[in-house]
Design a binder for these strands. Sequence first.
DNA 1: ATTTATAGAACGAACGCTCGCTTGACAAGT
DNA 2: ACTTGTCAAGCGAGCGTTCGTTCTATAAAT
Lengths: 232, 232
Amino acid sequence: MLELKGHTSDDLCRSMLERHADVISVQKPVVALKKLKIIISAALKLSNSKGFQAMSLRDLSKESGVSMGGLYAYFDSKTTLLNMILTEVTGAVDRVLGNPPPEVVSDPIEHLKWLIEAHIRLTEEMQPWFSFAFMEAKNFPAKERSWAVDSEELTEALFADVTARAIADGRFRPGVTPLLPTMIKPLLQDWYVKRAKYRRRKVSVEDYIAAVQEMVLTTCLPVDQLAALAAR
Amino acid sequence: MLELKGHTSDDLCRSMLERHADVISVQKPVVALKKLKIIISAALKLSNSKGFQAMSLRDLSKESGVSMGGLYAYFDSKTTLLNMILTEVTGAVDRVLGNPPPEVVSDPIEHLKWLIEAHIRLTEEMQPWFSFAFMEAKNFPAKERSWAVDSEELTEALFADVTARAIADGRFRPGVTPLLPTMIKPLLQDWYVKRAKYRRRKVSVEDYIAAVQEMVLTTCLPVDQLAALAAR
DNA sequence: ATTTATAGAACGAACGCTCGCTTGACAAGT
DNA sequence: ACTTGTCAAGCGAGCGTTCGTTCTATAAAT
């Protein structure tokens, strides 16, 4: 099974500490990491249930057990807190999807299947982070919003690249819709946007990965290869 | 081309006036309709750019040109305003998708294609309303949220029904993923959630409808029918 | 004259954020 | 061994502001 590394909440908070050392006034790394994890986990919990805007810092203080003043040792404004979280999410996407294992890059179809699996597994392990990013990125100041869009387009570009390579190599059915790379994204996003629904219906990650791969491949592979695919 | 009726902003606001006559204190229908249209359109504009929570009633007052007191002649709380809009959206979905033309209901595959087209065309014409519903439904009190989920599941149920009929009739490939009806929804939603992206890329409604139909049908039709489909 | 509609000041609550004070761990000085 | 000094860390009442909502005075329509 595909293994991904470096995005436990521990890893992510450690990365946040480094990235925002200028704004975080707590010096001792052990203390800082421990508290930051608590604060971020509380922030994700509250934001994902009522929205980031609707979460007041008093809510966050109560949920995390850190006082108002204490919170401001970890960020200098509520908007900074938002950006700190969003930055880690896009960072994780770039790091994971941008580094495919060497054995898949030579075959565009294997690469495509890997991208689908890696994306779904990553969002599964970082589920609250992705829900947060998806829900909140829209509602914010022009600056932050535009790079949220950029990040979305960057992911899509990975699918567009691999699709273009497959077409150039004659591995896809002629005339397959040019919208294919665009349409993969919403299928991947549904896994974390509607996570509760899939949990309720007992759909496993593996089920979902297989379903998306099936749908995408049947859309783009040459017709004469589909029988073999279905037979597996 | 498929024609849908009864969901211009005029129709929708008229319906809002009837449905919430108890809460709207303005008596003269002509005046009420005119102003309500202005208020709702301003509310959708502001909400879709900064989020419903972040839209203050002072923003809304300024944008619509209606005073604070004036606004409260049309709703008795900000939450009521939210519900008034959401109610019209789910109402339109039920009305349109629940009434397929007689000529398609006998054939599950035609019915499926019609559902896809009707959903995308409806969300195209009511785009700001659907964006609003999608973005805001999540962040709200248990009551409103649960029926937002219900409404989502109801739409999905229509796809599940028609899929089940197609399978019973032997019209689908054996072993097609049971997740198919679930996965159609995010494809349909992408049209209004990421409307700006598709506009920027000059993707027309017709293009998008065709692409979704292609993707769905290639996933579920028997392999020996796909060549014919591709040839069209 | 009476009803209907509108404007905008006013209100209490809650917001993000600040700041002076307390705490506690640890090292220096005796 | 004990006291003292130091400073990072944490606290929460309070600041100015803005929120949703209400109210009263006025204007318009009938």
